[in-house]
Amino acid sequence: MSRPVFPSSPASLRTLARAVLLGATLLAALPPAARAQGNLEISTPAVAAVRASMQARFAQLEPLLASGAVGLTQDGRIELRDANLVPLAQRAGAGNLVAAENADRVRLYREIAVANGHPEWEADIRNTFAQRWIDKARPGWWVRTAQGGWAQR
């Protein structure tokens, strides 16, 4: 003879109802973006500002990537790999450009994590971007290998 799986006494039922209610409350407390499957929030003012800033900088960064003066790292940043490839007059500017870009990238990863209610996702987001930047690097650009050397795409 099989017994019913669910509790039948009123006290147990009340406990169960309370547990379900608590679960629903916890779910409702999560930010909407965390529940909506399929998309991360990337349109908050903070994220949009970094996106626009990086996009504006790319016009100056592109020649440095194309010449090999600047390369992509494994951790989602860029690096000045050969300053001799930059004309002397522009060398200081190139260093500033790389520093500004890296500051924006760090901000981008953090702001996306924050925008989605999970600051602890920052490292995962950085890793996802790091892989994607490298995948999408144009032919001729330089990329840090896992071994620490440079490889040309």
């Binding site: 499957q37 399929g38 991360l40 996106r51 996702w121 987001i125 996802t128 971007f129 994607r132 999408k136």
Partner: peptide
């Protein structure tokens, strides 16, 4: 992870 890939894809295409 999949949502993050999509977000990265979109932002990188835009920035580059």
């Amino acid at each position: 992870a999949a949502a993050a890939e999509k977000a990265a894809e979109k932002i990188i295409d835009e920035v580059w």
